[in-house]
Design a protein around this nucleic acid. Sequence first.
DNA 1: TATTGACTGGACTCTGCAGTCCATTTATGA
DNA 2: TCATAAATGGACTGCAGAGTCCAGTCAATA
Lengths: 205, 205
Amino acid sequence: MPAPVLTTRGAATRRRIVTVASDLVAEKGLVQLSLDDVCERAKVSKGQLYHYFASRGALVTALTEHVVTEVLDLQSPLFAQLDTLAGLQFWVSAVVQYHARRGARGGCPIGSLISQLDRGDEASRAVIARGFQQWGDALEEGLATMVRSGHLDDSIDPAYEARLLVIALEGGLLLTDVYRSTIWLREALDARLQHLRLHLASARV
Amino acid sequence: MPAPVLTTRGAATRRRIVTVASDLVAEKGLVQLSLDDVCERAKVSKGQLYHYFASRGALVTALTEHVVTEVLDLQSPLFAQLDTLAGLQFWVSAVVQYHARRGARGGCPIGSLISQLDRGDEASRAVIARGFQQWGDALEEGLATMVRSGHLDDSIDPAYEARLLVIALEGGLLLTDVYRSTIWLREALDARLQHLRLHLASARV
DNA sequence: TATTGACTGGACTCTGCAGTCCATTTATGA
DNA sequence: TCATAAATGGACTGCAGAGTCCAGTCAATA
């Protein structure tokens, strides 16, 4: 807890633990995450694990942070192009394709975590909340740019539309997991895009 | 497995087990469900539990079925009035209020289950899928009636809109759980309603 | 009333897993 | 080169929870 001093080697080990843990979560779900499994795959001893993390809960929070930044970083090149509808459409396609490749299993890497968290793990929940906030911010920024540049008419509220996109994303991914099909996700996001299309400034003619 | 013969007493015991189990899930989540807890609260012995269920997994599937029918039954009076926009609006308010009362915790009683299921529990997943299907069907039926009666213009696809409502519901509830606030849910559902409002036949004037 | 099978009680086993402990190794910097 | 602290290995503890076993009870029916 009180920020243990880390050497370069120590930091690497810690990082390896977190990475392995989040990989295992991606494979088997947070529920099935066992510290022994983490140790085995990360080639690390129990002593090391508890040298770097005070408890299982601490590791879970760290791993959650890792998943959030990983998911967001992966999309950052796409986020940079969210200032046109084509860019937004491309992002949608990429997200759908990503989950199609994964066999439409597991839902949202971030969103699926909340219900698997221990009741009372406020730390991890806060991390997830911040993650969605950032996700929404990226979308909002793109939309705001479109409004400012006149691509979208100013009846569009970027923050509001961004929230609806995040909700469509999460709802779509949940149903994707239930039905093992990405059509739900695609439909949900496309519906939001369709709505935006109706507010293209050029369509105002 | 091969449908054990149940007496009246046996059926009551079995029912009690399932009810208690789903109550415990509502309180602490599926992840935290322990068979010992179930036995204790249901005033039932281990022997009884395994007399009625082949395994923990079998109980989970049964409990999932119970949750699904409970959630759907609770809404059936509202489902009956889904053939007007006012009825739909009332349903939305009721859903939002329901989750507000629960402290905006736990997300959707049904939807939150999938990510907590054992990977490979296809039986329970199928139950959930059927549940969402029914939920969507109820919404679709209301919308279809509105289209037929001319309340909504026929550019509205009832099945499509019903799916989008279910997605908004699930996404909204997931974010509700993350942020401990129902505004996400309300916003998501209201947005769908708003869209429908634009297609009211009377608005075509 | 005797037999059969559902039903019940609860002790018991076994295992997987979180967390502890401590001895040993490695690095560094005074 | 010696002291110190980080880093590591891994055996060990303790427990909770799934699943077993079997002896005993209840109820219907022949």
